[in-house]
Nucleic acid binder design. Sequence first.
DNA 1: TTGATCTCTATTGTATACAATCCAGCATTG
DNA 2: CAATGCTGGATTGTATACAATAGAGATCAA
Lengths: 225, 225
Amino acid sequence: MTTDTFKQAAPENQGTSLGEFVLGRLRDSIRARRYQPGQRIREAEVAQWLGVSRTPVREAFRRLQADGLLVLTPWRGAQVAELGRQQVVELYALRQALEGTAAGLAAEHASEAEVDLLFDHIEQDQAAQGEPNRLAEINRRFHEAVYGAAHNRYLLEALNGLDDSLALLKSTTYEVPGRAEAARQEHIGIAEAIRRRDSEAAEQAARAHISTAEKARLKLLFGDD
Amino acid sequence: MTTDTFKQAAPENQGTSLGEFVLGRLRDSIRARRYQPGQRIREAEVAQWLGVSRTPVREAFRRLQADGLLVLTPWRGAQVAELGRQQVVELYALRQALEGTAAGLAAEHASEAEVDLLFDHIEQDQAAQGEPNRLAEINRRFHEAVYGAAHNRYLLEALNGLDDSLALLKSTTYEVPGRAEAARQEHIGIAEAIRRRDSEAAEQAARAHISTAEKARLKLLFGDD
DNA sequence: TTGATCTCTATTGTATACAATCCAGCATTG
DNA sequence: CAATGCTGGATTGTATACAATAGAGATCAA
């Protein structure tokens, strides 16, 4: 069985290589917190788990390192990145700028369909009250819809990377009482500004949204007041 | 000669692996336009050039792909990324936002020494009038000094990645007559706003600076008016 | 001549063997 | 007993063999 694993192990081998496959599985696992921050990940262990050799695993490791999800120290291997308080603050500072920019650009460039999509997500959101994990997922979709509506591939990539990094943090801010409803209102504000094609207002609304999310997050993680 | 290349081929093997070494050399080569956009790069060719096996070369390729400098198509290998007009526009849009943010944060967080450094670079700039390539290099240093003064590692990383991507474009905007002097004035405006700790002004000055740079670039590349 | 198909070579994707390094645990010594 | 140096096993870094694929050129029929 030299290379039949090539085809067997990756059920959805849709046009991509094994390296891509491993990358996806690892990214998902980190997002789902199956691998926790700080935890060491051994190449051989992943290789055995996914039924491939170490080579594609190493490829995936390098790309996850580039995304900041893994910390690779020479001869010591990989561990899932850990975020300290300062890093969380810096991450949110950047995210505030990028989300603001995305919302502003979305107000300028979004198609009708893309605007409608935003409001669709807000409705789905209302239907999921009381389920933090589901809310977090829908929230992510809403934000991704904004990113897409901005029509800037580099901005999109940067924001997706940032979201991945934030997934390293334990739990979601939707566990804070009242945060879900507040977030919903803020989303509405952003979406309406985009529909009005009011770029300035959209940017400000998005920045404010991230700012309050940051406060909730810091309180949750470090007990800030 | 199984693995003695490990030590021979990489003269400055300072604590890093061969993969890192190859990554650096390739990045430099792309920046220096030794490899031109669109050009195909073969693994074996690089491996032979640097006296290593294909394995570390592949590692470097993956990371350059993550940075957007290389485009890897399965079974077809790597080519240096090419930027079309739309991509240049999107790149500058993001850069405007990030540079603005960096300048604003620098106004808040820069130390005295970091502010002095900015003005040092401006002086060096004056001494290099008439040498486009040298001016471009000093310009890069000035901007990196701003990035550093912002004290946000994610922002720093994002901006450095963006600069790498812009290095894919042929020639520098300093070849446009009068651009050098204009850029110098704009740099002074940014630096002074930072020294005054005027975050808002610094952000606006930086955004304006990138905006005029973009115009010069588009004119140079596509003959825009 | 032209068009399609086929083969064959060049190149990438993957697996694996081996070298280099780190680290935990133990022995040794003061 | 504490500190230090050594040793073996575990793990990563690198090289290389082999499989899979794409693309260019040749072959052949119309």
